[in-house]
Design a protein around this nucleic acid. Sequence first.
RNA 1: GCGCGAUUAGCUCAGCGGUAGAGCGCCUGCCUUACAAGCAGGAUGUCGCUGGUUCGAACCCGGCAUCGCGCACCA
Length: 930
Amino acid sequence: MSAEALPKTYDPAGTESRWQHAWETSGAFHPDPSAPGEPFSVVIPPPNVTGSLHMGHAFNTALIDTIVRFQRLRGKNVLCLPGTDHASIAVQTILEKQLKAEGQRKEDLGREAFLEKAWEWKAQSGGTIVGQLRRLGYSVDWRRERFTLDAGCSAAVIEAFNRLHEQGLIYRGEYLVNWCPASGSAVSDLEVEMKEVDGHLWHFRYPLSSGAGFLEVATTRPETLLGDTAVAVNPKDSRYAELVGQTLTLPLVGRTIPIVADDHVDAEFGTGCVKVTPAHDPNDFAIGQRHNLPLITVMAKDGSMNEAAGPFHGLDRFEARQAVVAAMEAEGFLVKVEPYRHSVPFSDRGKVPVEPLLSTQWFVKTEPLAARCREALENFDPRFVPERWSKVYRDWLTDIRDWCISRQLWWGHRIPAWFVVSETGGAITDTTPYVVARDESEAMAKAESIYGTGTHAHPLVLEQDPDALDTWFSSGLWPFSTLGWPDADAADLARWYPTSVLVTGFDIIFFWVARMTMMAGALMSAREGSGIPWIPFRDVYIHGLVRDEQNRKMSKSAGNGIDPLLLIERYGADALRFALVREVAGAGQDIRLDYDRKSDTSATVEASRNFANKLWNATRFALMNLGGQTPASLGEPDPAALQLADRWILSRLARVNRETAERYESYGLGEAAKGLYEFAWNEVCDWTIELLKRRLNPGDNPSPEALADQRTARQVLAKVLQELLVLLHPLMPHLSEELWHGLTGEPEGTFLALQPWPALDGAALNDGLEAQFAELIEAIRVVRNLRAVAGLKPAQPAPVQFVTGRGELAQLLQEATADITALTRAESVVVLDPAAAEAARGQRALAGVCGELQVLLPIEGLVDLDALKGRLDKDLAKAEKEIAGLAARLANPNFAGKAPPEVVAECQANLAEAQAQAELARRRLADLGG
RNA sequence: GCGCGAUUAGCUCAGCGGUAGAGCGCCUGCCUUACAAGCAGGAUGUCGCUGGUUCGAACCCGGCAUCGCGCACCA
């Protein structure tokens, strides 16, 4: 690319798609497991195929891609593996909704046709998502793309289920589960959300069987009284002590139920009597177990009342509630109704209250697995970043309940269990025997070994469990199923397991992180003897959520999501990525992305776009000034030829190189982004380029010295820019790739993405020089400020005088005279010692002080006296304020006595300087007055 | 109820023991041949409140307040 061909503003659209295409077709991110380099691997959290990606995914993507691109530059053998998740319940909900709109039910289609539709949906949604990920510039290996329901992942699920079952970690049984009537399936505890709702507390009287009165109970769910099998009181409650053991007659039903004593009951709450419905409430279930109470289920799986509900049979649970209350009132059992605000469990997906329902389901026995994970955590395995999330993880793994993994859904992994239905008259019942196997023939073999081969008239008949597995069961295998497990010899698995880091939001620590570690504990710990860790990732980097301008979590369901593509089209993928990463700071907090919904604009992303444009123009400047040369053809600058500004920026470059690498390495991504932004914009563009301009353009008939210096300036500019582009590449991959090619002239088949991280030039680091240069910058700023105060036109030259008694500073200014002239439009630059300045006293001049330096602009006749005085007054006030503070501190004997000597010394030095400043300002003011 | 986080400039957020910072916004002046998506200059804060530790606290410790989140949950 030539300088002339470069437009003045950066247009991301074409550039980004071109490099995305080039990277992918060249296989740049398709690693070879046998290639050299320390392995570094990440499996991406697979997005659900429920439509399209939102800003949260873009955020996650930006973070992961920054990390893996950095590691690639560091020479690691990097695998970043993409994929999507089948999201069993979510997708099925979507599809059923679609069917409903067409007046159909999934049963009308049948399982096979329904699954066909689901796969069609997957193809469409998955395609959209993959397109979005590509558009972000994700440097993943698309050739290894996976889907949780693909053949490999499915084989892994079957194997995992079998092994866990063999280990006794999976069992089937009848328990109270969270039943979602909307989706007609059991869900896990994690898929239940407690919501505060305004309800009622109904107080009912239950008559004692003896006829000697009543007990009063209160409930938020009157319909469940039909299934009551006891009333409980606290054993220490003297009011009811003698009633324990007696019985009541359950109203409407007429059943005789006992009064039991149980610690769970809070005597202080309400009347101290609790109706007990073991088949419809988890606490009551526990009470029922302790007291051997019968379980009476009064509700069907669709949320309606069943036969056991007698006259209420067929009513929906909420209709039944009203009907039961009415009946109770009619019979005189209703005491009162109070408004009552309480928590109700809702199904995450179905958006309806879940029903605790007795049901036969498959479970994972979690405690042994959780214990193993807790133990590993003692050794910081995995290591959470920020560390505080490890406590959240550990707490959840403590007192964990068994995990219900079966779902009455079609879309998902069908449970690899076969019922021997010939033993139970051809139907699957709760007592039908079953075998767990890898496939039907293995199941048959297993069944035959137990039940015999059957007879011709009564053959052994198997039927696979119709239910599917919880999606998170397969997601839990993701870090190893994607690498080839259960094939123990899989090259990818051998090379890249355990993965290096898992990057995900704190909202799925339980869903995913903990499930993955538990699954790995059961399935990968066999490798323990080999010395390879089984925990599926070394680090877990937890990030926050993207929130909208009103601080709400961005989500599709809330309708406040922002389509990342909208911002990408407007500002470019790099700008969006940079904006997202730059907002990340500190300890995994949420980030707020400002966004104007009316205009679809974002000031934050726009600022990043402007930064991209700044880099574009800096490179454009270089191309116009390197005389057609490249960094390689120019070569490294000769250290002996370097000027002050050269040595400064090279020192800064080396420091930024080191800092940036450290920040990328330690997940300080936001800091890395901010640091590079400041370095590039302020130090490279505002100072270095401005300082180099003069030397890059030596004018007509330049001297040999000027030509040599031009070459040095070109070398410095080329080196700084090229290195900066590498450091920025993880954050702005497309732009940096484009500019790097422009700068280096490398052919398309070579990629910045695969270059080595620039070696740290330790010799260039120079603290003293950087401090000195900061003084020079300050001096120039003071001059510019004085000019602005005086109202000088920018183009108008003015003489500049510096006064300082510090020889070293004087020498620095002397050396930089040409630079100062260029950057301050100085007519002349003179450096005086205080004695010489004394002789020149009385001249009309603008004066300013900075540190031990006095800056004078003697511009007779042009001076606005008031402005001049104002400036000096300001300087004086500032110095006096500082003097007051420092003097007070030093006057405190405790300070001198207890503070570290270097702090005291610094304080004294600062005081002396402030006093000198104040003195200078006073004398100048006096001069003006006279 | 238990736990976690936040509270700093108009906005979004850094800073986490030694005299308060950035970006955006705002004010002033500039189309200076890299960039007006820009350049130069400037203003802006009892660092939530309250005790304590310390020579010294935005920073450490105790309490309180407000907001947010997670877990648990009493019918």
